[in-house]
Measured scan of single mutants.
Amino acid sequence: EKVLKRMREIKNELLQAQNPSELYLSSKTELQGLIGQLDEVSLEKNPCIREARRRAVIEVQTLITYIDL
């Protein structure tokens, strides 16, 4: 939940920025750090946690791809 919240904050900052190119590098670095945090999530045998992590990774990767474009 914390990762998704921060990812959404970054997305809003990028969309509202007057000059978003200044934010791209720092935002991309922070998003890659969020992916690292998601990699540390213990998936164990809980399919709900596994699915939530998968969705979060996809959302963060989508935003990274947007920045790259």
Rank of each mutant, 00 (worst) to 15 (best):
V3N: 00
V3S: 03
R8F: 07
R8P: 00
E9L: 02
I10R: 00
I10Q: 01
K11M: 07
K11E: 07
K11A: 08
N12I: 05
L14F: 03
L15V: 06
Q16A: 13
Q16H: 15
N19I: 04
N19R: 07
P20R: 07
S21W: 10
S21T: 10
E22Y: 11
L23I: 03
L23K: 06
L23S: 02
Y24P: 00
Y24R: 01
Y24C: 03
Y24T: 01
L25C: 10
S26C: 06
S26L: 05
S27R: 13
S27A: 15
S27I: 14
K28H: 04
K28C: 02
T29I: 15
L31D: 00
L31M: 01
Q32F: 07
G33F: 12
G33C: 10
I35R: 07
I35T: 01
I35V: 07
G36A: 13
G36V: 11
Q37P: 05
Q37S: 10
L38W: 03
L38H: 00
L38D: 03
L38G: 02
D39H: 06
E40R: 11
V41I: 15
V41N: 15
S42W: 10
S42C: 09
E44S: 14
E44Q: 05
K45R: 08
K45W: 08
K45Q: 11
P47F: 02
C48A: 15
C48F: 15
C48Y: 12
I49M: 11
I49A: 11
I49N: 07
I49T: 10
R50W: 10
E51M: 07
E51V: 10
R53V: 15
R53Y: 15
R53P: 01
R53K: 11
R54S: 12
R55F: 08
R55Y: 04
A56H: 00
A56M: 05
A56C: 08
V57T: 02
V57D: 04
V57H: 12
V57G: 07
V57K: 13
I58R: 15
I58K: 14
E59C: 03
V60S: 05
T62P: 03
T62Q: 15
T62R: 14
L63E: 04
L63M: 08
L63P: 02
L63K: 01
T65C: 03
T65K: 13
Y66S: 09
Y66L: 08
Y66A: 08
Y66G: 12
I67W: 06
D68W: 00
L69P: 01
L69T: 13
L69I: 09
